[in-house]
């Protein structure tokens, strides 16, 4: 019972971090129907950025987030302008898979050259601290990460629902042709939307670097998890991604702590398959074009 509760605590807190990464992924898909295979690599890249800021200047990874967010936003806009915008063909969605995978490999290669392939981790003074509550250990970093995820997702929600830009994004998601007819510059929205998706990787990267040792190839594990979360939640649904992230990490942690870590990944894929059998569009996905 103790292990079960500890597993749930761990899973829910970790879920927040994955929710943050996956929200960017699903946003990009919602706006452009682009499955961004480089999202994991962007998370790892921003983990390296906050690592470097911490090692060179002693900047706390949480305080580095505004800086890394701006950088990653720029990277996202750049990737969209340089690599994705030229794709104008009918099979743009399929081609974008290849293009974003190439971007992921490019980022991985650059990181390997710059930082070598040894594992890094961001060791702040509080990296290993935990609070004891009722006999359970609650890791300080995970609580901060969870809170950060809530704040970031809240800001993302406000941006999408309370601003003109957000309205334009949502209009593009729902009906790109009508949005264009009503004066939404869909190309600009696509670039900024991709930037926004990449920017969510910045906060996630800082937290990822605090929680786990990482190296340039860590993005393969990440992207498979992120894609599964996004599919489970329903492609294009930010709320769905959050719910799915919590389901994924809680089920993994509970199975790892009560049954065996060998089954923890498997459990999640069983859930994914069951959901897809009953609801092929995912938990919160729409059959037609999505709505955020």
């Amino acid at each position: 019972m103790h292990a079960l509760v500890q597993g749930v605590i761990l899973g829910v807190l970790t879920g927040g971090v994955y929710a943050l990464m996956a929200s960017g992924q699903t946003l990009i898909f919602g706006i452009m129907k682009v499955v961004n295979l480089a999202q994991g690599a962007m998370v790892v890249m921003s983990a390296y950025l906050s690592y470097q800021l911490f090692v060179s200047f002693g900047v706390d990874p949480f305080l580095a987030i505004p800086v890394t967010t701006v950088v990653m936003f720029g990277v996202g806009v750049g990737v969209q302008l340089v690599f994705l915008r030229p794709l104008r063909r009918d099979d743009k969605s399929e081609l974008s898979l290849l293009v974003t995978f190439a971007v992921a490999l490019l980022i991985e290669g650059l990181l390997s050259i710059t930082f070598k392939t040894t594992y890094r981790s961001i060791n702040t003074s509080y990296a290993n601290s935990s609070w004891t509550v009722g006999g359970y250990q609650i890791t300080v970093v995970r609580v901060y990460a969870f809170a950060l995820s809530l704040v970031s997702l809240g800001l993302l929600f406000l941006l999408l629902n309370r601003t003109r830009f957000g309205r334009a994004v949502r209009a593009t998601v729902q009906n790109p042709d009508s949005a264009r007819l009503l004066g939404v510059e869909s190309e600009k929205v696509a670039a900024l939307g991709f930037g926004l998706g990449a920017a969510t990787a910045a906060a996630a990267g800082s937290v990822y670097g605090l929680l786990y040792p990482f190296y340039s190839g860590s993005h393969y594990d990440l992207i498979s998890r992120l894609l599964s979360i996004v599919v489970l939640g329903g492609l294009g649904s930010v709320g769905g991604a959050v719910v799915a992230a919590v389901i994924v990490s809680t089920s993994s942690a509970v199975v790892a702590s009560t049954v065996s870590p060998a089954w923890s990944e498997m459990t999640f894929f069983v859930i994914l398959l069951l959901v897809l059998l009953v609801r092929p569009q995912g938990l919160f996905g729409k059959v037609g074009r999505g709505a955020l």
């Binding site: 292990a3 500890q6 597993g7 761990l10 970790t14 250990q137 890791t139 786990y212 594990d221 993994s252 942690a253 790892a256 702590s257 870590p261 923890s264 990944e265």
Partner: peptide
């Protein structure tokens, strides 16, 4: 591929 060791160490 185990990334999170908290459950095992718990």
């Amino acid at each position: 591929e185990t990334q999170d060791f908290s459950p095992i160490m718990a």
